[in-house]
Design a protein around this nucleic acid. Structure first.
Length: 366
DNA sequence: CTGTATGATTTGCG
DNA sequence: CGCAAATCATACAG
């Protein structure tokens, strides 16, 4: 590597150890017997350089010979020292670790989508995460579309298994490299810092791979999401019975067609739809009714009759013929918009009718 | 294919 | 956050 050559030149430069009689294998023995350290060192270095050109067996033998050389420990320590310095300087130069904003964004998104969060956290966790992530995704907390969930779960599973795979591969590889380096450190000067650096490099590489994984997971989620939204736009009409139930409620509460949360839940259950669908329905219904009451006249009469029949069935309280007040009794109405009108009286303060229509109580009175 | 009905979404307000 | 209003995009009837 780069370090190695630098180290070598550094060393030779340091000691001025260039030798004339290089390349002669027999030189070692001659020099050894002569006991000239400088020559020794130069020669040893030369031999080290030459090792790559030798056959494996020869190289092995040479290596062993060098290892047993009496100068070896000293030379080794010098090399280590130099290496330490170079590695340190390299480290100093290229050590910067800014928390990548890109990866942070990906993390946040995955968390918000409930992909990387706690297992099967459910809508609440996802919503909370979304809220925390400030992204403010319009996550409907009551998404019950199992398709979407199933696919999201699938993505999550793939994501996690891949992540695990990478993590495992990373640690395996790191271990491998560390073992290798440790092994080599007996014959080659390797400082702990260098190992550390190597590990850091490996981790960086692997985390970049992980980022790619996160990126593509995000993309998959986005695609799924958009497709899901499209699918939601591909609406299906509610079945007849559901609209009937809804209409019944609407027209029997025409004076105050704002079902409470509980009422919505009940309606949703009865109709086999979600609470937000109930809310949508009432929102649409109110606005459309108000916009063109005439158009709904027939419908209104129809359900008014229905309600009247029901009311008659339930109780013979003729005293309040005016108010069809729901079977579940009046506790709810006080919650909604107009606290003032709790004091019995007529339903004069009706938002719908006040806004739109010349008061036509007649249709409601049956 | 066209017009209407209708569920869902967006926008803006309090 | 719940609602009104406007709007979108499809379903459905003719």
């Amino acid at each position: 590597m780069d370090d190695q050559t630098r180290m070598m030149t550094g060393l030779t430069g340091l000691g001025g150890l260039q030798q004339a009689d290089v390349g002669d294998p027999d030189a070692v023995r001659k020099q050894q017997s002569l006991g000239q350290p400088q020559q020794d060192i130069g020669d040893i270095l030369q031999q080290i350089m030459a090792i790559t050109d030798e056959s494996l067996d020869e190289a092995q033998a040479r290596k062993h010979a060098l290892n047993c050389h009496r100068m070896k420990p000293a030379l080794f320590s010098v090399l280590c020292e130099i290496k330490e310095k170079t590695v340190l300087s390299i480290r100093g130069v290229q050590e910067e670790d800014p928390p990548d904003p890109q990866i942070m964004r990906l993390d946040n998104m995955l968390l918000a989508e409930g992909v990387s969060g706690p297992e099967k956290g459910g809508g609440s966790a996802a919503a909370a995460a979304a809220a925390a992530a400030a992204g403010g995704s319009p996550t409907d907390s009551s998404i019950e579309h199992s398709d979407y969930r199933a696919k999201l779960a699938q993505i999550r599973q793939i994501y996690h298994s891949e992540l695990e795979k990478y993590e495992q591969a990373c640690s395996e590889f790191t271990n491998h490299v560390m073992n290798l380096l440790r092994e080599q450190s007996r014959t080659r000067p390797i400082s702990p810092k260098e190992i550390e650096r190597m590990v850091a490099i490996i981790h960086r590489k692997f985390s970049s791979i992980q980022m790619q994984l996160k990126q593509s997971t995000c993309e998959a989620v986005m695609i799924l999401r958009s497709r899901f939204l499209d699918a939601r736009r591909k609406r299906r009409n509610f079945n007849k019975q559901a609209t009937e139930v809804l209409n019944e409620y609407f027209y029997s509460h025409l004076s105050n067609p704002y079902p409470s949360e509980e009422a919505k839940e009940e309606l949703a259950k009865k109709c086999g739809i979600t609470v937000s669908q109930v809310s949508n329905w009432f929102g649409n219904k109110r606005i459309r009714y108000k916009k063109n009451i005439g158009k709904f006249q027939e419908e209104a009469n129809l359900y008014a009759v229905k309600t009247a029949v029901d009311a008659a069935n339930v109780s013979a309280q003729a005293s309040q013929a005016n108010s069809p007040a729901t079977p579940n009794s009046g506790t709810i109405s006080s919650i909604s918009l107009d606290p003032k009108h709790t004091t019995t009286h007529y339903q004069a303060s009706v938002p719908l009718q006040t806004l739109a229509s010349p008061h036509k109580h007649s249709d409601r009175v049956v």
